[in-house]
Amino acid sequence: MDAILLQILNGLDKGSAYALIALGLTLIFGTLGVVNFAHGALFMIGAFCVVTLQRILNISTVTIDPTKTDFLGNPLKVKTPYIIEWFGEGAGMAIINWSVPLAILFAIPIMLLVGYVMERGLIKHFYKRPHADQILVTFGLAIVLQEIIKAFYGANPIPTPAPEVFRGSFDFGVLIGMAENAVIYPYWRLVYFAFSALVIAGVFAFLQFTTFGMVVRAGMADRETVGLLGINIDKRFTIMFGIAACVAGLAGVMYSPINSPNYHMGMDFLVLSFVVVVVGGMGSLPGAVLAGFTLGILESFASMNQVKGFFEAIYLPSIDQIIIYLVAIVILLVRPRGLMGRAGVMED
């Protein structure tokens, strides 16, 4: 029981990341009709917004400490961040300590800008091209973006720890009357899950309860008719691309303490998120969220020793690596348009 609960909890935060990326991916597909394989790169850029902010906050003055030496035996250069000089040790360190949550504010304008440049500069030229062309160009763009990040930040992961208060874990099992150490859960993963739920709810509320959202939904259902009513739907869809980029970027920002940012992290999530979108139903926002969490939890279960052992016994090794694809195959065989997909989407 405790093992099952543990894997459900693990699946929730994995699913949160899948759901957030897939939400943006399907939002872009639903509005612009573009299959954006560069969406994982947006997640990665979001994570590197944290790294960039950390570096900005750590820009330092250099003083020489003659009493100490560096590795070559020269007098040691001591670096003191400007932020500590300006605000004092306590406040300066607190700002650096909270750099991940602060990076949300830093990342929003950057991601909107990146999304705008990406859409206006490249993707809009591919609206009327076949999906295969869109996939090729956006996949190429993803590779270019990750190589740029690697050139600036290197290939190794860069640690971006959560604020001190959210490091470590709590005994969830004890809270619900189970044995000690049965279900341990890190604080930050709980924060990540709550943040994801908030962002997903925010996007749905925005689309459901605002006039802008209503027009976008109408455009998703029948773009031509909305255009005939004199509404500039293209402009709104461009804004939606920016919002989708922002959602992916913020997912990356908040994910950075869970796994240290590295240039390849976007690709790691992209393929799985694409599967999530397909399973959820191309263009279906609730489908993306449902499939994200479902597949995240399934992936967690598949990594349990008992489950792996069972599948190994029936000649299906490494089930934890293929479970998502197996489930995707089954769902698409039984329900080709995905869990919540609409008829006609991607069927031409």
């Binding site: 405790d2 093992a3 543990l6 894997q7 909890l9 693990n10 699946g11 935060d13 994995k14 150490n181 049965a182 341990i184 993963r189 869970i258 796994n259 992290m265 790691d268 992936e299 967690s300 990594s303 349990m304 020793n305 490494s318 934890d320 690596q321």
Partner: peptide, 22 residues
Amino acid sequence: VNNVLTPLATTDFSSYVAPVLN
């Protein structure tokens, strides 16, 4: 007590680490 093989491409080890304490 146990040896769990983790695929080389794994990036999130939470589901492998979580059962260790128990």
